[in-house]
Design a protein around this nucleic acid. Structure first.
Lengths: 122, 122
DNA sequence: AAGCTGTTTAGACGTTCATCTAGACAGAGC
DNA sequence: GCTCTGTCTAGATGAACGTCTAAACAGCTT
């Protein structure tokens, strides 16, 4: 059930802070896909709800209840997050459970952190 | 020259890790604006080039040369980054200089970091 | 197997976005 | 003042996005 894209490979330089060298076009495209996935309020709240479970899994039914949008819309947003490599899911019986992928979020976090810290210091 | 939006106010909870409590709709909308600004390869590279200056300023003319797109397109992307509160600029004579706003990047970084770390631990 | 519930897929529709060209604006220098 | 260069604004256009309804799919239960 995890057809996620090959994102956030450390070797490609995704974890390289912005500050040490500027991003290549390929790497930027890769990372931008992750940030773009975070660039919607519904998706950010979805991720937040999943992350708030402390690394555990969350059933879609719980997520759907927390929003004003329809089920299919939630499903669409979860798919975007999954294809960006930020979350993954598994079906168990009737229900589908989602969880976050810490490494992916960590890579994005590091990129921003490094650049902001370095900029603040000098 | 800085008509940036009131983003990343710590008091609003922007720095609150995802993991401790889930984002409210308002805060999520606010933060999503920042991530959306990062969700384009050109903008990410622009930010990278500016950040790579180590907190110093970069002239637009240097940025334009590094991309295949036209000047107006670069100007548009810089405006998006500026309106998201991630960078700011100032005109000095003929040239316009841009620099990053570390606090804004730091806030976004923290959000992702907290959630990924906490998720990894438990 | 028939029906029920949870979830995803398909397709449509209006909005937003990234990019371009053309033109306006801001300073510098002649 | 005129012109030249650097930068931004305005408007147009095609692509991508967010949302919906309708329908399909996956398991459970009886």
């Amino acid at each position: 059930m995890s057809k996620q894209l090959p994102l956030y490979d450390v070797k490609t330089g995704c974890c390289t802070p912005m500050v040490s060298e500027s991003l290549t076009e390929d790497v930027a495209t890769d990372l931008a896909r992750g940030f773009k996935a975070l660039g919607d309020p519904v998706r950010l709240r979805l991720l937040s709800l999943i992350a708030a479970r402390g690394g555990g899994e969350v059933c879609v039914c719980e997520l759907t209840d927390a929003f004003a949008v329809t089920g299919p819309t939630i499903s669409h947003h979860l798919r975007v997050l999954r294809e960006a490599g930020l979350i993954d899911c598994e079906r168990r019986g009737t229900w589908v459970y989602y969880w976050i992928i810490p490494a992916a979020l960590g890579a994005l976090s590091q990129l921003l952190d490094a650049s902001s810290v370095a900029a603040a210091v000098r």
